[in-house]
């Protein structure tokens, strides 16, 4: 009920003060905590750009009321890797040409990590289904499939 609440994001606690309680987790991550890696493109769970892990599950952060995530573990793209130390999935996206404008990319990286962490050897339809909630307007998905395949190969090697 308080006007302030605490979020646990990427292992660290953040106090959110004087916030309008109607703010989505996406908004708070970006505009209050400065974690701009998570993107918003539809505000209604249709594009997947805002995908984060909430207690380990990949969800759309635009559909999470931030104040309701108190006590949950939130993981964002910033925790997955960095420009200098990308994760295997991130490296594969760059090397296979899975990035064009890059706006959908952080959400896709999160979705692919969620997939491969749960299922190291998904079938082709399983891959497509796992990222079907992440819209990409530039690539037509072809190079993204290649990136997922490359990450699977690397993990299997």
């Amino acid at each position: 009920m308080a006007e302030h609440y605490t979020l646990r994001v990427n292992g660290a606690s953040h106090d959110v003060r004087d916030a309008w309680l109607g703010e989505s987790l996406l908004y708070v991550l970006r505009e209050r905590l400065g974690l701009y890696g998570t993107k918003g493109a539809c505000e209604q769970g249709e594009c997947g750009s805002c995908t984060v892990f909430l207690d380990g599950a990949a969800v759309c952060s635009c559909l999470v009321l931030a104040a309701s995530a108190e006590g949950c573990d939130v993981t964002t793209i910033e925790h997955i890797g960095s420009d200098d130390e990308p994760s295997d999935v991130q490296r594969a996206f760059v090397e296979q040409g899975g990035v064009q404008c890059g706006f959908c990319t952080p959400g896709l990286v999160m979705a692919v990590h969620a997939l491969l962490d749960a299922n190291p050897s998904p079938t082709r339809p399983e891959i497509r289904e796992a990222i079907s909630g992440n819209l990409c307007r530039c690539t037509g998905y072809g190079r993204i499939f290649e990136a997922v395949d490359a990450a699977i190969r690397e993990r299997g090697a």
Binding site: Y36, E78, S82, D84, Q90, F93, V94, G102, T105, P106
Partner: peptide, 9 residues
């Protein structure tokens, strides 16, 4: 710019 784009930076 790919490395920044995949990292969200």
């Amino acid at each position: 710019d790919g490395w920044q784009k995949v990292a969200g930076s």
